[in-house]
């Protein structure tokens, strides 16, 4: 009984660590990617592209692919390595923790303003990307192709 509880606590801790890893990497990449993109555009003498509305969509795609998705992936990868039970659910949890804590950090630091929030850009796209990254990360470790053949 005690051993079971200990295992459960360890699993929860590992999922939280996965979520924290996810948050840290996402936050770091969220600062790095736009900065890097601006440097690249400036060196190509086309920084003014960022003035146009369509570029905001391009920026969102880059950030989704290069910040949110890898952020979720690293959390899922860690959790998938440490927690082998029920990968369908456990691989999503670090992403969920990472996303919710990212929203909290952005709100606390004033980056996210609920009254002027763009729901799709600031909530929907990041949540989908981080959760998808986390899911793929978890399954990369626990990938057992044979199991899925049987299910089908």
């Amino acid at each position: 009984m005690i051993e079971e509880e200990r295992t459960k606590t360890k699993m929860i801790l590992n999922l939280i660590v996965g979520g924290v890893l996810s948050l840290l990497l996402t936050y770091f990449l969220l600062s790095l990617v736009p900065w890097l993109l601006r440097i690249i555009l400036f060196s190509l003498n086309v920084l003014g592209l960022l003035s146009f509305d369509a570029s905001r969509t391009a920026m969102l795609l880059i950030i989704s692919g290069s910040a949110y998705l890898p952020g979720g992936f690293i959390g899922g990868l860690y959790a998938g390595y440490k927690v082998r039970e029920n990968p369908r659910l456990t691989s999503l949890i670090p992403g969920l923790i990472g996303f919710l804590s990212l929203i909290l950090v952005q709100y606390a630091s004033g980056i996210l303003n609920p009254s002027e929030m763009d729901m799709f850009r600031e909530i929907v796209a990041p949540s989908i990307s981080i959760l998808l990254g986390s899911y793929l990360g978890g399954y990369t470790v626990n990938w057992r192709p044979g199991e899925y053949v049987d299910e089908g």
């Binding site: 391009a58 795609l61 989704s64 692919g65 998705l69 992936f73 793929l136 990360g137 990938w143």
Partner: peptide, 21 residues
């Protein structure tokens, strides 16, 4: 497969972004 899908999604998103720019 999940790792390959992860890399493919990153490539597709970045290429779509470059196409928009």
């Amino acid at each position: 497969l999940p790792l390959a899908i992860f890399i493919l999604i990153i490539l597709i998103l970045n290429m779509a972004s470059a196409a928009i720019f």
